[in-house]
Design a protein around this nucleic acid. Sequence first.
DNA 1: TCCCGGACCGATCGATCGGTCAGCCCGGCT
DNA 2: AGCCGGGCTGACCGATCGATCGGTCCGGGA
Lengths: 210, 210
Amino acid sequence: MHSGSADSAGAEEILLAAKDLFAERGFEAVSISAIAERAGSSKANIFHHYGNKQGLYFAVMRAATERLTDEFSRLLDSDDDPSEKIEQAVRASLSLLFEDECRSRLIFREVLESGPGRSEALAEDVFSNEFATLTALFSDIQHDTAGAPRLDASFLAYLLLSANVMLLHCRQVIRHLPGVDFVDERERYVTMLRDLLLRGVGDSAGGDDE
Amino acid sequence: MHSGSADSAGAEEILLAAKDLFAERGFEAVSISAIAERAGSSKANIFHHYGNKQGLYFAVMRAATERLTDEFSRLLDSDDDPSEKIEQAVRASLSLLFEDECRSRLIFREVLESGPGRSEALAEDVFSNEFATLTALFSDIQHDTAGAPRLDASFLAYLLLSANVMLLHCRQVIRHLPGVDFVDERERYVTMLRDLLLRGVGDSAGGDDE
DNA sequence: TCCCGGACCGATCGATCGGTCAGCCCGGCT
DNA sequence: AGCCGGGCTGACCGATCGATCGGTCCGGGA
């Protein structure tokens, strides 16, 4: 009755097709006909399963965001070295972003277009956990080191995320900027971001060891 | 014959209306009728002036990007103190972004949607000068200080820009993240970003003075 | 066996899309 | 006066939009 056969166009295929198209073109630029064609289904079938275009979009967004909140802390295991802790956080955020580019693009679109009420819901339901985990990580490191913190842990978390998000979504432009070579050298990018954040938490060993 | 009367709907009003609407909803989601209505003109008049929808969009993008390249260095005047130099750069980039939010949003949309050939053109024609100036600024500071640079000047420039761009476009969501209070306290944001970048260039005075 | 409900489809709806066309208005040139 | 060209308009075009309709197919319970 449900998951098993693959050549028939069911609700699942519609959801996947809609996710891809919404991610790369946006809500208004994608027609139901285009989704139906890619899913190998009919227009009417989409309305049968999801009511209307908004319903389909909500279903896509729900599927994209539901398991995202706790996947981040799964990628982190405790480590004593502050440098490795931060590097792990950078890698975790990066792999979560690049793992499913359609999902990331979908969510980023939603963030950019979110109205007054929607932005709070996004912050609390989707990003709150990841951001709090990241902030706590920096805060812990700052308590362990002697240097004057001075920089908010939440600010460092924001910087990590904004750098990674921009790298994902704007890399085609950034790559062609004069003097930029870290876009395709992922290891150098991770190392540099780690070193800078390390200096941010007050650890002066940011560029000396290794 | 041209600029003077204000109640008539000319090519200028159409351009401004289109700029606002394209910025907040995107190219495909905006109809010619909506632009005509906001501009106080007629649909046919838009086609008379700009040929087709693409032509209008190109005209809007050209107007938005043409004077942008050299406005950045205008906001910078030489200063010897590295800390003030960086702070000046942060403020310049920030004010350029917030000065005309519609323009920033328009350009950011273009960056996100840019195809294979378009992204190179954007990098070279629009951002190249600003980014090169920023990179040179960090590079100069690094040559003046004794510490090991280790971090690319272009990477620091990238970090400055990504932090500012994300602050502009995603602040409604970021503001509601747990522990974040720097979104509405612009001075604290500038200071923190300046301090972190200062440590990035090798100057250890990042959080001590003042 | 009959029947029912859900998945699914082709045909079609009214509305709106981007775009075209004939013509009005009006300042300036001859 | 005659007219001519550009700014500007309402009416209209075919295409496509989101959405609805009646109807076909089919597996499972009675």
